[in-house]
């Protein structure tokens, strides 16, 4: 899962930051009245900024192609699931959903095949977040009234997946959910 490395990376960076700040603070506390501070600060500043720039550039180039807009773009989905979100429920159907009288059905999706969710909302903004069996967020998209967002995903593990609303939508936001199975 993606979250664990993210947390480790963050904690490591936060730790390094704390050490650097502490080190600099202690160096000031210990400094004698006559000490001159940092030598060649302009040069160091330049190198510091340059290294940071390079790191950020590498990160950008490495991560942008993984953005959800480009994933599975050139494949034909094996299945399309229509999703209409409404306070405080999700309608999921393999057929198109009529906004005037929305109805949903039980959804069963194939494993290892491309699935496309066509997500829209019938009232306010909602979130459409898919959680796997161990309650990890694996992918998400927003449901916006007036628009259809197409989220593509390949489920590897069979089992039950839950959908939670991840955009605050009112008093029962925390109870808005649905589920489907992958076989």
């Amino acid at each position: 899962m993606q979250q664990q490395p993210i947390l480790v990376l963050f904690l490591a960076l936060a730790g390094i930051t704390t050490i650097v700040f502490t080190y600099i603070f202690v160096s000031s506390k210990k400094a004698a009245q006559s000490e001159k501070g940092m030598s060649n600060p302009l040069k160091k500043r330049f190198w510091f900024s340059l290294i940071l720039f390079v790191i950020l550039s590498i990160f950008t180039t490495a991560t942008l192609p993984d953005s959800p807009y480009y994933l599975f773009a050139d494949e034909t989905p094996a299945k399309v699931v229509h999703v209409a979100a409404r306070q405080f429920t999700f309608f999921l159907s393999e057929k198109a959903i009529d906004p005037a009288s929305p109805t949903g059905e039980d959804i069963e999706l194939p494993a290892d095949e491309l699935v496309e969710f066509r997500v829209t909302s019938l009232d306010v903004n909602h979130g459409f977040a898919i959680y796997n069996n161990s309650n990890r967020l694996i992918t998400q998209v927003q449901a916006m009234p007036g628009y259809v967002n197409r989220l593509r995903y390949k489920f590897k593990e069979p089992g039950q997946y839950d959908i939670l609303c991840l955009e605050y939508c009112g008093m029962a936001h925390q109870a808005m959910r649905a589920s489907f199975t992958v076989k």
Binding site: P68, Y69, F72, A73, D74, E75, T76, T120, G146, Y147, V148, N149, R150, R152
Partner: peptide, 12 residues
């Protein structure tokens, strides 16, 4: 098969 991640509903 050109994927566009979104489209607008026709009645809007």
């Amino acid at each position: 098969n050109v994927f566009s991640p979104t489209y607008r509903l026709p009645s809007k």
